[in-house]
């Protein structure tokens, strides 16, 4: 890579880092939302059972 390493490596590192963060946060948010929905559905079921 020689003298150009200081230009090439930051490009690859920043790209991988940003894409990983974006990918993980999107997946995590989706999972958290799914869990919350399940909880609410259970609450709803219990409430309707009481009736």
């Amino acid at each position: 890579m020689g003298e150009y390493a200081i230009f090439v490596w930051p490009c690859y590192i920043v790209t991988v880092a940003l894409l990983t963060v974006l990918c993980f946060s999107s997946w995590k948010n989706k999972n958290d939302d799914e869990k919350k929905l399940e909880e609410l559905k259970n609450q709803m079921n219990e409430l309707t059972k009481q009736d």
Binding site: M1, F7, V8
Partner: peptide, 10 residues
């Protein structure tokens, strides 16, 4: 030289 490797992400 090697600096063109940036195009693979750019």
């Amino acid at each position: 030289g090697a600096s063109y490797r940036i195009i693979f992400v750019h």
